[in-house]
Design a protein around this nucleic acid. Structure first.
Length: 356
DNA sequence: GTAATTTGACCCGG
DNA sequence: CCGGGTCAAATTAC
């Protein structure tokens, strides 16, 4: 495989993006208070946001893209596509068993998104992927319904990525976005597959054509883009309560042995994480009073990535982890990735997950 | 006409 | 049995 070339491409891209992001941040720091042109701030905010998205997508693509269809098990995603009406079947057992089983094994992580101005726009909720809403539910104890989204290309490409979006109880400005599963659709790997001829232009093209579609929300349609500036993220990776069988394919590793690639990807992780942590690591968390609505007060464009493995627990206790070790965080994720990659080696052999 | 959303019913796990 | 997650027909938007 010509991974090396691609990796170089990605490194360059990531490096540039990181630099740009840092510069933007610096610029933001040096904003003249007297000027206080919101437009400028807005612009900067969007720049940063854009960078974040790019980096994030790049990073994810690095993992997802290099994997071929993740679920290579016999009952591959195909039956997602088959409009398999359970009603028509006298088949009492449906395929739901498989579905739920799969659901359980998918990697899961939560992103807490804060939208400052209450205009109703959730820029952050639009994370760069195309989602289709497939359900909405009132959640007990929650003031707002939870929306269920799946990747638009699930049928076409068997992409199993889903997410849940729900407003926080107390704060309509906070959205909890629960991601589940990695994107296996071609879009998600757009960066990864980018040939050397690919420039930022084509990347932008990609974004427009595939990914970045404004996401209509259950609330009011967005009128202004102002709120996008004040957004804050908290990304935390979680693993499902891993049963014995459940390893944590947080990045959906294929069962094909790839070692050097992983190493390189690890570098990407570090790169990206570092870029995020540049000047953005401030333990400004507010300890969550309750496990329900966790309000994290953060500086704009503050993203924390928590990786995997040993660190993961249920969402509630997760918060404790996050808050309790804000300083070690800078290194921790990288270490975690290392850890995970190491485990990945094992994962290749015993991911009985897909054999059942 | 096609694609996305809405919405009530269904299924599963706890 | 209840609550959460998903499905799919109906409806709406493009």
């Amino acid at each position: 495989m010509e991974k090396t070339v691609l990796d170089c491409e990605q490194k360059t891209l990531i490096g540039e993006l990181s630099q740009g992001m840092e510069l933007a941040k610096q610029l933001m720091n040096h904003l003249d208070p007297s000027a206080s042109h919101e437009t400028r701030e807005l612009l900067l905010g969007k720049i940063l946001s854009s960078f974040e998205k790019s980096l994030s997508a790049l990073n994810w693509g690095a993992f997802v893209g290099q994997t071929k269809p993740i679920i290579s098990k016999p009952e591959s995603p195909s039956h997602f596509g088959n409009s398999s009406p359970r009603s028509e079947g006298s088949d009492p057992e449906y395929k739901h068993r498989d579905v739920y089983k799969k659901r359980k094994t998918l990697p899961k992580w939560t992103e807490q998104v804060k939208v400052v101005s209450g205009t109703g726009l959730e820029g952050p909720v639009d994370d760069g992927y195309s989602w289709r809403k497939y359900g909405q539910k009132e959640i007990l104890g929650a003031s707002f319904p939870r929306g269920y989204y799946r990747c638009t290309h699930r049928n076409a490409q068997g992409c199993l990525a889903t997410k849940q979006v729900q407003r926080s109880d107390g704060d309509p400005n906070i959205f909890e976005v629960n991601y589940r599963g990695r994107h296996t659709c071609s879009q998600s790997s757009r960066f990864n597959m980018a040939p050397s001829s690919r420039t930022s232009e084509s990347l932008k093209e990609n974004r427009n054509s595939c990914h970045l579609k404004q996401q209509p929300q259950e609330e009011k349609p967005p009128q202004e883009i102002v709120s996008e500036f004040g957004e804050g993220h908290l990304v935390k990776a979680e693993e499902l309560e891993n049963g014995e069988d459940d390893k944590f394919p947080f990045f959906s590793f294929p069962s094909t042995p790839i070692e050097s690639e992983n190493a390189d990807d690890n570098i990407f992780e570090s790169l990206m994480l570092n870029s995020h942590f540049i000047g953005s690591l401030s333990p400004t968390f507010i300890s969550p009073a309750t496990s329900e609505s966790n309000l994290f007060s953060m500086s704009p464009c503050h993203i924390n990535c928590y990786g995997l493995g040993h660190n993961v627990q249920t969402s509630e206790s997760d918060h404790t982890d996050i808050i309790s070790a804000p300083t070690s965080v800078t290194n921790s994720p990288i270490g975690d990735f290392d850890f995970s990659l190491d485990l990945d080696q094992n994962f290749q052999f015993d991911n009985p997950e897909f054999f059942s």
